[in-house]
Nucleic acid binder design. Structure first.
Lengths: 219, 219
DNA sequence: TCAAAAGTGTTTCTCGTACACCCATGT
DNA sequence: ACATGGGTGTACGAGAAACACTTTTGA
């Protein structure tokens, strides 16, 4: 039993995934999702959170209650690992861009790097180990569907965020540009639904300073 | 590693779940989801489908390509089974009402029976074994969310079905009555989206005979 | 003064909801 | 004839989409 993690962030307006380069066979030199074995007395969520910490060193995230983590599914094809029977429970994690620079500081993270999700799909599956292409597809599908139905988008923006930052996340995941005026109205509606609130201060931009908003956790 | 199954159907306009009564400790006498161990060379979906067959004897379902089966998630609390560490991958399955009468014919199914989902929730968790209340909750949540986004509703109606039969499924899962006129319009829209087609014949009802429709698999 | 992005407004269309009503059939 | 449920029509409102426009800043 292992857990594998699809750790996403939005950098430079594009969706990125954290991958590690494998040092040993099988698939030496190939890219793979970070992951590891579940310990004997560990819950699956616990194991995923521990791996996330080990791979990213992001202890600091606990101040926001930790990064968003959600299970994607179990993958158990008998031949998915040539060495032995391994069943993996995959989760996806969302890292806000403010914390991305801290990741290199982590322990196992020396060999970890961000790759563009768009590039992964163009290169097809060539450089990816095991059944990880399949896992990534499932994680992406889940990510996109959760985007419209849950509040996961807020896990990918800085804590007080501008409307543009939030829109950028939606565009990166959805893959298509969104009309800024219309998106603004969606955000305003979230405000009088009590889901968001205006925060103090302004964010400097290339032009007119932007209002800041904050996600209000449901009571 | 085990698979557990939440097998649903709609009987008498209400959502039902197939449960077995446990014969041995732990939880002897309690109700539990059907399930079993994953075999060494079996994929998880394969194991789930095999268990479904063993528990229901519904070989006949293959004529419609088998019942709908989808993974819900993995459950791995270290103490979920007092005997040993067991991680279970839960799936839900949907059985159309036409096949329900055949289920008693199955092998392991002698001790299986349908219970009202509504009753399960009223009785809280008292009579359910292991963490099965949690699994059932997750399966229900998934069922409800898939209902609006996928075509799973068609797996719970007879093959040519009436609009009322389809509406009944939505009402049973959603738990609330739906305006018949409005629901009809939704169905008509599905028809000119090419998702449904009018089938020949009529279904006898307590009043005016109803048109029959058929689900058209996406090409 | 000009570019860039924030923010506002307008119009059109689709869809969900509520609800009134007609139609065909078995009893 | 009448209850039952199939099937149709209307009216309102929320929200998605397309797009023009004004405002405020930095360069």
């Amino acid at each position: 039993m292992t857990v594998d993690l699809a750790i996403f962030t939005v950098l430079d307006r594009l969706l990125h995934l954290l991958v590690v380069e494998r040092g040993e066979p099988p698939f030496a030199g190939a890219l793979a999702l970070p992951g590891g074995f579940v310990r004997p007395n560990e819950d699956l969520d616990e194991a995923a959170r521990r791996e996330l910490l080990e791979e990213t060193g992001l202890a600091a995230m606990t101040e926001r209650g930790g990064p968003h983590l959600a299970q994607v599914g179990a993958f158990g094809r008998p031949d998915r690992d040539p060495r032995m029977r391994v069943i993996s429970v995959a989760s996806f994690a969302l890292v806000p861009p403010e914390l991305v620079p801290q990741i290199r500081a982590g322990g196992d993270a020396a060999h970890a790097r961000w790759v563009l999700v768009r590039d992964l799909r163009e290169l097809s599956e060539s450089p990816l180990a095991f059944d990880h292409p399949e896992i990534i597809d499932a994680a992406l599908t889940r990510l996109r569907s959760d985007l419209d139905q849950t509040s996961i988008a807020f896990a990918l923006v800085p804590d007080p965020f501008t409307i543009q930052e939030l829109r950028t996340v939606h565009e990166a995941i959805g893959g298509a540009p969104i009309d800024p005026g219309n998106f603004r109205k969606r955000v305003l509606r979230m405000i009088d639904d009590g889901m968001l609130e205006l925060a103090r201060g302004k964010r400097q931009t290339a032009s007119k300073p932007a209002n800041l908003y904050r996600f209000v956790a449901p009571r």
